[in-house]
């Protein structure tokens, strides 16, 4: 059994709340979120950055939390699926995923929503190609993606109306 290194103290902001935690420096951000912070909305699908189920935002950019050692988020702002709705008020993308049938089994959904919201923040009115490219890092085995594309389009329309 190999020797253990010391845990590191890490301060970061998660869904707007600044917190300090102790963790092995190479622990995956995914595991720290799920196990230490009990934010289990972020899912593990592959552990190798392929499926996007573990997508979170780090300083506003989408990232696969399975590939991020927790030490690297010291001082960063993290947003997870738990931070997307405002209280009881769902984000337009979440509403659209429900109404368009963008979620089936739901396991890819948190990551897909994180990617879709991030896409719309960067590109408020994406073309179909931009939607497809923007979600290419998030694999869904249930929907064949059609209803997810529809949801993103509907969310843009909804956001447009609100603005």
């Amino acid at each position: 059994m190999p020797d253990r290194v010391n845990k590191a103290e890490i301060t970061c902001t998660v869904n707007g709340e600044t917190l300090s935690l102790k963790a092995y420096p190479m622990a995956r951000l995914l595991d720290v979120l799920r196990q230490e912070l009990r934010l289990t909305g972020t899912k593990e699908g592959c552990g190798e950055g392929e499926c996007g189920a573990c997508s979170v935002w780090i300083d506003g950019e989408i990232a696969n939390s399975c590939l991020v050692p927790v030490l690297q988020v010291a001082g960063s702002e993290i947003k997870t699926i738990e931070g997307i709705a405002t209280g009881e008020q769902l984000h337009a993308v979440q509403e659209a995923f429900i109404s368009c049938g963008g979620a089936q089994c739901g396991i890819c959904t948190p990551g897909m929503v994180m990617a879709a919201v991030n896409l719309l923040e960067r590109t408020p009115h994406p073309s179909e190609t931009e939607i497809r490219m923007g979600l290419a890092g998030n694999l869904c085995r249930c929907t064949g993606y059609m209803k997810i594309f529809e949801a993103v389009v509907r969310a843009c329309q909804a956001t447009g109306v609100k603005a």
């Binding site: 059994m1 190999p2 020797d3 253990r4 290194v5 590191a8 092995y24 420096p25 190479m26 622990a27 995956r28 595991d31 552990g47 050692p69 030490l71 690297q72 010291a74």
Partner: peptide, 13 residues
């Protein structure tokens, strides 16, 4: 995770 995570050191100069 198939690695023994506690054995891995990471420092951030």
């Amino acid at each position: 995770m198939r690695s023994y995570v506690p054995a891995y050191e990471l420092r951030a100069p």
